[in-house]
Each structure stands twice: as structure tokens, then as C-alpha cells.
Design a protein around this nucleic acid. Structure first.
Lengths: 349, 349
DNA sequence: CTGGAGGGTGAATCTTATC
DNA sequence: TGATAAGATTCACCCTCCA
């Protein structure tokens, strides 16, 4: 990681070692047992070691991230609280904690606790002022037109997706499902963004990144994992460039001034506009202004004024009459968008 | 708390301030203002102050707990990571983190993050060697004879349960639902156990404890909250132990977004979809959107648009090719259902 | 009495481009 | 860097009112 240039990464996904405190034994990321962990070591020392390790790799990630980049970490209750606190201490700005609810978790055999049926992901921006990427519309579409929530229901990685060695045994103990990474990368990256996975394991992040046409960097010190990851990535085929593009956010869509609709005759000067309840009305001017008895301005400004509100989206506030009913102006804009007027058509098919 | 005797409490439930750090006012799309938490008790100057506060009250709780006692804390991403780390540093032994999934959370109005639809509870024993209480069978019964998982689906506290002042306004900004406390106390305490709530608020913990015939101690420094809690507890009547366990359960409805099939690789981005007669076609995007030459959106939205219909069931309208024939998408959903991909094994509402 | 329309609201770290 | 304007943005549930 130290060899990579500062500010070169758009998004980090990290699945660091969880194996903290398994009956007193602390393991390093390379699976070696930390020397001297015995009864003489108090808990604080165990945690201190893990904390130092966490601070080191998270700090490096922060250095590598672009100003507007984001980072994802996944963990369980053994380690996620320490990671979250250190994230905050390093200046990361938490955007969400996301719960991966497992459809098929391992039951609690002893009946001494609740079935541990989830893991926690933290999604954080590099800093409080980061203007991070969030593909809101893509997430909403993915969830049948309802805002995506912070709890995700996804099956464990099983079946043919699970990487196995020549003996048919699972190659990696905690291989993550591709569906999880699909959602992570689709939410927080664009095509050609650079994705870094500092604990690449068997390469789930890299394979999904390649499939979705993101660029990717994976770091893995265990040779068997690294080798498996390389083969896996090589076998992965990207989807077509067209198919990799998620639904763009409205903000990124072609901007259409209301005046252009008037210019193009889609709405005539003199047309009366109403709010949804016909409580107020206004008239369209030839320049795309609207005027009431005592004010005049853009659809947004007048909409805000008549409501006595600080702001207003005129596209959805104002309606015009069609077939005896009221239709929001936004409908006209959609038509224009679809017809590729005014340079639109930059939208992917 | 300092006046209470050491080792006198069986179970602590704590709902401390979250340190939300809200900046400006937030408005809904209809321009109404969100009534956020801006109470003085939730303001801390920085993380260090919050950590010191947390360490102080958690340390006192540990002193008060019996050797085999357990502690619950509830929080959100703003504070829960710090609390979890401090718990571990103090020698508590985490048993589970439990997710309260809200059935009716507040949406994310600006579309800049995932809907914050859950809060996190940590359940911890006083120490690693504690022989803590867990009413496994009661939890299993409560959950239709399936092991209770670590994700709980429970509605917000609204309606008549919500405590209000003489003006009909909510008395406390963050009153917890009794259903949550019911499950907590039923899981981890016995009849006549002593339950302590160091941030008692309007007395939810105390009322549920009384109803379930537990003994209880509540601490609250805000006079209005304390007064309300006292009245509430006085009005609460204990039920028979039998009646307390018999909580009706209801399976969560199954809902499968089309996008989850794409995520799970059951249908690939780039796949072409057709209507039954192959009159229209569309392409699947990585977010589960479908796009035609001039429109894009969910299977339902685009299905409606191409038919010029007000609505459409995309599951039955769209087909994909298999063995030279056309198969409706709904067929895929049935497969997924059988495998239990969404909402399966879920919890009572 | 029922059903539908309409309004209110919940622990929220909630915009961006341009001048 | 700060002011200004454009314009994007909500789900589930409960309650009241009125036909």
C-alpha cells in the first residue's frame, strides 16, 4: 500500500481479519499467532495490538483515497466497534452503517445466544466535506422503486460461487458473496473508477469490479489466496459497456430550462399554471417566467413565494390542464428528454 | 448510581444520548421541517468528551452488575462504535449485537444516503466468565419455534403508546417501543430480577419490567421525563407470566425486488427482455433497471410506459429467452422464493 | 359503519452549480 | 470563499374528516 500514490483511489472495500480474541489468541492478518498472548497479557494489550494494526491500514487507505472518495469496511461484533471508533478518530465521516442480513446463517448450536445472522458494513467518506458519490437512482431501481434501506438481505456465498481447493474444501473461510459487492460497487462507484481492496482474499471485490467495468487494485499476502484471485479475475468477463451503466441520477441528467419548452412551443405563452389543489395560479410568459397578480419570476422562485417557502421545485409544483385534469410540468420535461431535444440523448440507452 | 450497592443488579438496559451532531434544519420534500433531536442532553463538544462520559456511566454499570449480570445498550452509527469499543476495554464480554430493523423508519429526504432504517443494540455479559441468563426457549417460542436471530423487525413507537404533553406534542424525542423492551427483558432476565435503566426517560424499560414482573430501578435527571415515567409505571399492571410469553407472531411478507435477481446472477446485465408477443424489447441494467430506446426505469415503470398504461406488473409482462422460447420473469422469482432469498426466516413484526 | 382522501410524522450527522 | 439560484427529494403508518 505504501507504494501506491496519494489520492489515487475512488473507493476502498476492506474485509479485514476478524479473528480477534478467539479464546485469548490474537492472530495477525497473515494468520500467524501473535507472540506472548497468554494469561499474562491483559485484554487491553490484545485490543491495543488490534487497534494499532487497524489504525495503520485505515490511515493508509485514507492517504490513498481521493478527497471525495469513500470507504467500506465489513466486520462483526468482535472487531467492528473498534474499527468504527478508529475510523471516526482518523477523520472519516460515517455515511451509513449497513446490515448484511444473511438468509442462511449458521445456527447457534449451543442455544446460548441469538443466531448471529448478520454482519455490519460501515460506509464512510474520506472527510466530512467530501462530495461523495451515491447512485441514489440505481439503488432505488434495484429495490423496485423504493429507497434502498440500510438493511440488506443477501444469501451467504455457497454453491458454485464458493472457491474450493483440489480436495473440494472451501479455499477461504469467509468468502463474501458477489451479490454483496455488486450492491456496494453499484451504489458508490462509477464506471472506470478505481477500487482498492487491501484484503483481497479470493478476489470477490476484484471480480465484481471487473464485471462492472471498474478499475481495481487488490492486495493479498497469502500466496494461495492471491493465486486463486488472479485466476478468478482472469476468468471474469465484463458486461457490455452499455449494460454496466446504472440509471443516472436526475442531477446528472441533461438540464432543461423551462424557457426552452416555451421556445419549442410545448407550452404556449399565456397558459395558466396551477398548484395541485388549484389554490394558486399563474401565467406563463414568453420568456419562461410565470407571473401572479403581484409577483413574477422563474417557476421555482414564484412557486416558493406563493407557498411562502424557502425553496420550491417548480417542475413538480406547477401543473397545467390536459384532458380536464392537472399534469405537472415535469411530465413535459420527461417528454423532451426522451425525444432528445436540446442536446439530450447523452443518456445511455 | 454511586449510591447503589455493588453487585446488586441482574440486568442493565441503557439508552444513552447518541451525540447526533445535527447541523442545520432538514426539510421534507413538501417543505415541512423535520423535528430533529436538538436537546441539550445530546450535545457534546467532541468525541473525547463523549468517550469520557461513556466510560464513566459504563464503569458504574459494571460495578453495579452481579457477576453473572448482562447489559444492553442501544445506539446508532454516531455513537455505537465508541460504546462497543469502550465496553470491550472495560472488560465486558459481548454476546451479540442485535439489529432493531424499523418497519417504518424516516426516509432519507435528500436521497444522499441509504435510509437509516435500523439501530444497533449490544448485549454483553459483565465478563468473559459470566454465566449469564439467556431464555433460549422463550425466544424460540416467541419466533414460531425457530431460533431467534440477531435482527429484530419492530415498528417505531407511535400512536397511543407514544407519551404526549398537554399540547399533544411528543414528550420525549426518542421514546423506544415497548415491544423492543419486551423482547430484551424476556430474553435476558427472570421474574423478580433487578433491572436498571440509567437513562430512564419516559420509563419504557420500567413499565415493561413491571408488566413482566421484574423489579426495576430507573434513573432520570430531567424532571418532566421522570414525572411522566412515574405516572406511567403507576398505571402499568403486571400480567401473568404466561400471558407475557404469548406474543402473537406474524411472518414478514415476502417481497423480492427485481434487482436482487440481478445481484445474485440469476439474470445478467445486458439480457434482453420482451413482452409476450415480442412487440417491445428492453435491456437489463446492472441495477435491475430496464431500458428501451427512449426510456429507462424499473420493470414495472417501463412496462407501464411502453403500454401507455397507468401501471404494470413487470414480473408477468416481461419475458426472457430460454430454450428458444419466452419465459416470464415471474418464473425466476419463484425459483428464488423456493431458495428463501428474501424475507425468509424473518422475524415477527 | 365503511372507505377514501388528506394531513402529520418518526434518534437525520440529508444539495449543487454558478457567479 | 461566500452569496445566490436551480432544483432534487419520502415510506409506512396513524389519525381525522367527510361522503
Amino acid at each position: 500500500m505504501r507504494m501506491l500514490p496519494t489520492g489515487s483511489v475512488d473507493c476502498v472495500f476492506a474485509d479485514p481479519p476478524y479473528n480477534l480474541q478467539l479464546r485469548g489468541e490474537l492472530r495477525r492478518p497473515d494468520d500467524s499467532v501473535v507472540d506472548g498472548v497468554d494469561e499474562a497479557w491483559d485484554r487491553f494489550t490484545d485490543f491495543a495490538e488490534y487497534d494499532a494494526f487497524t489504525r495503520a491500514w485505515l490511515g493508509e487507505c485514507r492517504r490513498l483515497l481521493k478527497k471525495d472518495g469513500t470507504l467500506w469496511v465489513i466486520g462483526a461484533y468482535h472487531n467492528i466497534f473498534r474499527i468504527g471508533a478508529i475510523l471516526q478518530d482518523l477523520g472519516f465521516w460515517i455515511l451509513n452503517d449497513v446490515i448484511w442480513r444473511k438468509s442462511n446463517p449458521m445456527p447457534n448450536f449451543r442455544g446460548r445466544r441469538f443466531t448471529n445472522a448478520h454482519e455490519t458494513l460501515i460506509w464512510a467518506a474520506r472527510g466530512q466535506e467530501s462530495r461523495y458519490r451515491f447512485n441514489y437512482q440505481a439503488m432505488k431501481t434495484l429495490n423496485d422503486d423504493i429507497q434502498m434501506r440500510s438493511d440488506w438481505f443477501i444469501p451467504l456465498c455457497t454453491g458454485p460461487e464458493r472457491m474450493r481447493n483440489e480436495h473440494g474444501l472451501k479455499l477461504h473461510p469467509t468468502q463474501k458473496p458477489e451479490a454483496l459487492l455488486h450492491r456496494v460497487l453499484l451504489a458508490s462507484t462509477n464506471q472506470d473508477d478505481v477500487v482498492l481492496d487491501p484484503f483481497a482474499g479470493t478476489g470477490t471485490t476484484l471480480a465484481v469490479a471487473k464485471r462492472l467495468r471498474r478499475r481495481f487494485i487488490g492486495i493479498e499476502r497469502h500466496p494461495a489466496y492471491a493465486e486463486a484471485a488472479i485466476g478468478r479475475v482472469r476468468r471474469t468477463r465484463p458486461v457490455s459497456a452499455e449494460a454496466a451503466v446504472a440509471e443516472p441520477t436526475k442531477r446528472e441528467a441533461q438540464r432543461i430550462p423551462f424557457g426552452s419548452l416555451v421556445e419549442q412551443g410545448l407550452i404556449a405563452p399565456g397558459t395558466r399554471l396551477y398548484d395541485r389543489h388549484r389554490r394558486v395560479s399563474a401565467m406563463v410568459g414568453p420568456d419562461g417566467s410565470v407571473s401572479t397578480a403581484d409577483t413574477r419570476g422563474s417557476i421555482h422562485k414564484v412557486g416558493a413565494l406563493v407557498q411562502n417557502a424557502p425553496s420550491c421545485n417548480g417542475w413538480t409544483f406547477w401543473h397545467f390542464e390536459r384532458d380536464g385534469g392537472l399534469v405537472p410540468l415535469d411530465e413535459l420535461r420527461t417528454q423532451v428528454n426522451g425525444r432528445g431535444v436540446n442536446g439530450a440523448g447523452s443518456l445511455p440507452a
